[in-house]
Design a binder for these strands. Structure first.
Lengths: 105, 105
DNA sequence: CTTTTATTTCAATGATTCTTGAAATAATAT
DNA sequence: ATATTATTTCAAGAATCATTGAAATAAAAG
């Protein structure tokens, strides 16, 4: 991953609503959740939720799939993992000091 | 760490210049670098560099210390580590799937 | 084929962030 | 004291991002 793409992904994560969406989808498990249920869960209007869902899926953090009337979203952990790898390995050159600060080690 | 603080930190990381600063300081090692040398290294004007250094140290990603005429900056890995922990443990609830995507595991 | 449900798109507005270059501050050296 | 070096601060403007509510689209049901 190049720095510009990482910067874009960090930008997508730099919003509480979007972090709430990720949390809701992690809780929901591998089947994901519909846009409407996500909106209810995070307490935001449909259009506001849609705006954030678009940023998240545009960047590859979420994947969407239509299921009849609903649009179902689920997390794509590969993208989040790639971003963490960029930060730890690329950007911080695998720093041992940083690794020691991380619980998963 | 609460979601709002994490969102702020992600916002600080959402800029290529600032990622370049972090990379330069990781390369520089534990002694860090002066603002002027950072500006030279990342190829940005002094005031622009100062703007980004301020965002980085304000958020706790960098620490600064005056050394006579120079202001010396170095990385505070604790903050970056705490953010990675938030993302992996808090936000993604320690997801095994996410952990499997990370090289450090 | 009209209505209902689910969601997105759009335009307008407000808020935040970034860049630039000039001026201000801080420390040191002459 | 004055000049030099290092860095920040500031104001102005441009660019990007977020929110709102109304209108548009998509699918399904009556």
């Amino acid at each position: 991953m190049i720095a510009e793409d990482a910067a874009t992904l960090f930008g997508v994560l730099s919003n509480s609503d979007r972090l709430d969406v990720i949390r809701a989808l992690v809780e929901a498990g591998p089947d994901g959740m519909s846009a409407g249920n996500i909106a209810l869960k995070i307490g935001a209007s449909p259009s506001r939720t849609s705006f954030h869902l678009n940023a998240l899926s545009e960047s590859g953090i979420l994947q969407k799939e239509r299921r009849s009337r609903n649009l179902n979203y689920r997390i794509n952990f590969k993208t989040i993992g790639a971003l963490i790898n960029f930060l730890m390995e690329d950007c911080c050159k695998g720093s041992a000091e940083l690794r020691d600060c991380c619980t998963m080690r």
